[in-house]
């Protein structure tokens, strides 16, 4: 799972990582839904309070999880900790309603989740900003706060979190190498030694 503020490179890195691993990349669901929301009402920018939107993001993310067997590799952007961090900022009542359900889902999937936090400087994030909003500076600060909260939530939910990576000065390919190297020692449970032996031995 890739976590970090808007502009940290989650989507770029996610696509490259999934390509290298030969698996599916699941981009941020909130971004998909926000495009629709903005088309309907340009005032529904990322910082605006929007209970129905956050409610829909939680619901859609859990729907997406239904298709995921825990043993199947995927690269996912933001996921529940990121969605929860957004909701905590702009619609805490929605997060309160979903908290128990999210905790149950994360508890179930915890052994198979590895979190890679990404960091980015304020000026870089400002230069990479693509989201509309009333004040670019405030928007970047908001996204950084969400990124920090998402990482804190991932730790609070006892997910395995790798050391954060600064993405300002590294090329995407170099970032991929860093993530792969950092995750090398991680061995998720497979529940089947036979399968694991095959997966490890078979050339890809």
């Amino acid at each position: 799972m890739l976590l970090g503020p808007h502009g940290a490179g989650k989507t770029t890195l996610g696509r490259l990582l999934a390509e290298r691993l030969g698996c599916v990349f699941a981009p941020e669901l909130g971004a998909q839904l926000r495009r629709d929301a903005l088309a309907r009402d340009p005032g529904q920018h990322a910082m605006a309070p929007q209970e129905a939107f956050d409610d829909e993001v939680f619901r859609a993310e859990l729907d997406r999880d239904v298709n995921w067997a825990p043993g199947v590799v995927r690269v996912v952007e933001t996921w529940h900790p990121g969605n929860a961090a957004y909701a905590r900022e702009r619609s805490p009542a929605v997060l309160a309603r979903w908290r128990l359900r999210l905790a149950a889902e994360l508890r179930r999937r915890r052994p198979w989740v590895l979190v890679q936090p990404l960091r980015v400087r304020h000026d870089t994030a400002l230069a990479r900003l693509t989201e509309p909003g009333p004040d670019p500076g405030a928007l970047v600060a908001f996204f950084r706060r969400v990124g920090d909260e998402a990482e804190a939530l991932a730790r609070a939910w006892r997910l395995r979190v790798l050391p954060a990576l600064d993405t300002d000065d590294l090329a995407p390919d170099a970032l991929v190498e860093r993530v792969l190297r950092a995750s090398r020692s991680w061995a998720p449970p497979t529940g089947s030694l036979g399968a694991e032996a095959l997966v490890r031995k078979a050339p890809r």
Binding site: C23, V24, F25, A26, P27, L29, Q32, L33, D36, A37, E56, R59, A60, D63, R64, N67, W68, A69, V72, V73, R74
Partner: peptide, 25 residues
Amino acid sequence: HATQVVLVDPASLPTLLRRWPDGLR
């Protein structure tokens, strides 16, 4: 419909999930 998302399935083709304002999915 009110919203739609593409649900990626690592094991198969993605699907399109649409939600209506009254909660229908």
